[in-house]
Amino acid sequence: MVMIDIKGVSKWYGEKQVLVDCTTTVAKGEVVVVCGPSGSGKSTLIKTVNGLEPFQKGEIIVDGLSVGGKDTDLAKLRSRVGMVFQNFELFPHMSVTKNLCIAQEKVLGRTADEAHDKGLKLLDRVGLIEHKDKYPAQLSGGQQQRVAIARALSMDPIAMLFDEPTSALDPEMINEVLDVMVELAHEGMTMMCVTHEMGFARKVADRVIFMEKGGTILEDCSKDEFFNTPRKPRTQDFLSKILAH
């Protein structure tokens, strides 16, 4: 069953085209890793999936609903798709617990108690229960990102989008975040991850998408094919660079 269906999506910023006829799918339970050089449109593509970035051509269907559709309740669709950002984007004026509860209460209409229980359960799961009353600024980057993942999970998402979740982190904190993501993948969560962590891709990815400057999808293949027999010279070049360090 296809969870995310991206069909011929093009996007322009003014005159400049940043996505060119992008087509791919993410099946239910599948983990897809998106990589590629800076400026190739990875963030833009992943943000079109939950409608944070509008696009001018093509269609995106998430769980049967068209993202750009006139009758689509975009807020409702977004509430069912979790998103994790490069800079965490926790709400700095709220405690960790409040960060976990606010959308459950305001968007899903859960009671304060329900939201609180759920939030703390997830906080425990990412190993941060003792920090529940702190503010984001009092946490390390890795801890903030784990809270951000828990916050997204608190909405019981049908799929999760990650935009370079570890690239703003100090090296020693990357693994604590990747561990949470690996666990999620093993539980069968549908995931679309922009990341250059090839170790993560090797471990849990089903497919890898390689985007090239100008906003095109150059390669879209199974993990094994991507790492062992990439078809395009450009992909081989990119892989050798990224695996070198």
Binding site: L52, A75, R78, S79, R80, E89, K106, V107
Partner: peptide, 10 residues
């Protein structure tokens, strides 16, 4: 910040 809020369905 608003992106994160929208992404949560607000």
């Amino acid at each position: 910040q608003p992106w994160a809020a929208y992404a949560l369905g607000m």
